[in-house]
Amino acid sequence: MGSFAKQTQAHVREDDVVFTLETGGVPRQFEISGDVLRQRYGAADGSGSELLKAFETARSDIEDVAKQAKWVPTDGPIDLGEGDFAGR
């Protein structure tokens, strides 16, 4: 597991990576789809090691997108999908 994954307590759940990131001074839980990690960031398949490796590659984009989504009201993790990464 890489440093960003450790820092954010990232783990694979089904075909997503779930992680915690502080935005606006508040820790929030996020979830990025395996589809995004495969299509945009080079995960070769849906295995945990590949998804977490792509998660590390996507660090800068994930941090930027998470900051933009910090005020999204939700009772669970904030879903980050393909549309959130358009134009990156």
Rank of each mutant, 00 (worst) to 15 (best):
G87I: 04
V12R: 12
I62T: 04
A66C: 15
Q9V: 00
F30S: 09
G25D: 12
E63D: 10
M1T: 05
R38G: 02
D84W: 08
S3C: 00
L37M: 03
S49D: 14
Q29Y: 05
L21W: 04
T20Y: 01
V26R: 12
L51W: 07
F19A: 06
R38I: 03
V18T: 06
P27W: 10
E56W: 02
D79E: 13
F55P: 06
P77W: 07
G76S: 11
E82M: 14
S47P: 05
G34N: 08
P73H: 13
G2H: 04
T8G: 02
L51H: 05
V17S: 02
G24H: 08
G34I: 09
D64T: 04
E31K: 15
G81H: 12
S60L: 14
I62R: 01
G48Y: 07
R59V: 08
R40S: 09
A54Y: 05
D79A: 15
V12E: 02
Y41F: 15
P27S: 10
Q29L: 12
F4T: 10
Q29G: 11
D15Q: 15
G46P: 00
I32W: 02
Q39H: 01
I78Y: 07
T20N: 05
G83P: 09
E63W: 02
A66P: 05
D16F: 01
K70Y: 07
G24I: 05
G34A: 09
S3W: 03
G83S: 13
D35Q: 13
T8K: 01
P73V: 15
E56V: 03
G76N: 09
K53Q: 15
V72K: 15
Y41V: 09
D15F: 14
G48T: 11
I62S: 03
F19P: 04
E82V: 09
G25C: 12
Q68P: 00
K67G: 13
G83C: 10
E31V: 11
A54Q: 05
K67V: 12
I78F: 07
A43F: 05
D61M: 08
G24L: 07
I78R: 14
F4C: 09
G34W: 08
K70T: 07
A44K: 15
D84K: 06
G48M: 06
D79Q: 14
T20S: 09
A69Q: 15
R88L: 12
I78D: 11
G34R: 08
F19E: 06
V12I: 05
A44Q: 14
R88Y: 15
P27C: 10
D15E: 15
Q68Y: 08
D15L: 14
V12M: 05
V65A: 07
E82G: 05
Q7E: 14
F30L: 11
V17K: 02
A10N: 06
K6W: 01
A5L: 06
F19I: 06
R13M: 06
E56C: 02
P77Y: 10
Y41E: 09
L52C: 13
V12N: 02
V17W: 02
Q9E: 03
Q39S: 03
S60Q: 15
D45H: 03
I78N: 08
F4P: 06
P77R: 12
G42C: 08
V65Q: 04
P27V: 10
